[in-house]
Simulated scan of single mutants.
Amino acid sequence: MSAPGSPVTPDWLALREPADAAARAVELVDRLCGWLQERPDEPIVVRDLGCGTGSMARWLAGRLPRRQHWLLHDRDPVLVERAMAQLPEAATAEPRIGDLTDLDAAQLTGTTLVTASALMDLLTAGEVERLAAACAAAGCAALIALSVTGSVLITPADPFDAAFASAFDAHQRRTVDGRRLLGPDSAPATAAAFDRHGMAVVRAPSPWRLGPDEAPLIEQWLRGWVAAACEQRPALVAEAEAYLGRRLAAAERGELRVVVGHADLLALPGAADPEPRP
């Protein structure tokens, strides 16, 4: 996913990769590995939707129980090229350039696992529904990471935090080219879609917890967050410069802490018994 309010760039993806890796719910991978070990001893075929520069493959490949073949889906060939060049030793891969919202069960035939990271909030309810239906029909698992929840906690607090947070959430739910994005509704919508199609769903929180060691990421995230909020509600422009100045000054002093809510999800085909959802 791109920084809020900005295009996806390799620099932004590289900046956020350590925070993403620290946030992802490892317990869901443990459950996934148990499911994989019950399957035939053959290479795992993984489709990574919106792969970017391949951070999910770098994080996940070494945690899976045997060799994998990854199909790297993204609309940006430059990002896919970088993902192919940084592939872990445990995996081979093929590029898949183009739209990923129309995958169906036939295309997923032979796929063991579908993954996506920081993607579902950029999709519509219908697109998520089609993905869940395709995974269920194809009998493949899905590991969906880092869906934003709309929860943002910045300390110390500022009187304008709530206004910018509300405007940013509205921006994420905006309509683009006739598509109404799920934004912070994506985590419950995704869980409900997989559940409707008979898959066992387990969810886990995966928040970013950012402090002085992540000051460059905090700065870029804040700039994008404020810009998106102002785009959605232009009345905030009058406060944006002063607000951003206060926040960046606190970050520079090492005083700022930011918790950005995300949720991870594992959906397994069949009647696997899910754990209670948080």
Rank of each mutant, 00 (worst) to 15 (best):
P207M: 00
G198C: 05
R180T: 14
R209Y: 05
R209H: 15
A204K: 12
P184N: 11
R203I: 00
G183I: 08
V202D: 15
T190P: 09
V201T: 04
P207R: 00
A193S: 05
P207Y: 02
D185S: 14
F194Y: 08
P207V: 00
P207D: 04
A192P: 14
T190Q: 09
A187H: 11
R209V: 07
L181W: 05
T190H: 07
S206G: 06
P188A: 13
D185G: 04
D195A: 14
V201M: 01
M199Y: 13
R196A: 11
M199T: 09
A191W: 15
A193K: 01
V201A: 03
R209M: 12
A191H: 10
S206F: 00
A189W: 03
P184T: 07
D195L: 11
A193I: 00
A191Q: 13
A200N: 05
W208Y: 11
G183Q: 11
A189D: 12
H197E: 04
A192I: 11
G178I: 00
F194W: 02
A200L: 01
S206H: 09
T190S: 09
G178K: 09
R196Q: 06
A204Y: 07
P188N: 08
V201C: 04
G183N: 10
D195M: 07
F194S: 08
L181C: 06
S206W: 02
V201I: 01
W208D: 02
A200S: 01
G178P: 02
G183L: 12
A191D: 07
A189V: 08
V201E: 00
L182C: 09
M199V: 06
D185P: 04
R179C: 07
G198H: 11
D185I: 09
R209P: 06
A187G: 09
A191V: 11
G198M: 14
A187K: 09
A204W: 09
A189Q: 14
P184M: 06
L181N: 10
S206R: 15
P205T: 05
G178R: 13
D185A: 12
P188E: 14
P188S: 14
G178H: 04
S186Q: 15
D185Q: 09
A189M: 02
P207N: 03
G178F: 00
T190C: 12
A200C: 02
A191L: 08
T190I: 08
L181H: 03
V202P: 07
F194R: 07
D185Y: 05
P184I: 04
H197P: 03
A193W: 02
R196M: 01
D185W: 07
R196G: 01
W208T: 03
A200H: 05
R179H: 14
G183F: 01
A204R: 15
R179I: 01
W208K: 02
L182T: 09
V202E: 12
D185H: 06
W208V: 00
R203N: 08
S186N: 04
T190A: 15
P188M: 15
D185C: 10
R180H: 10
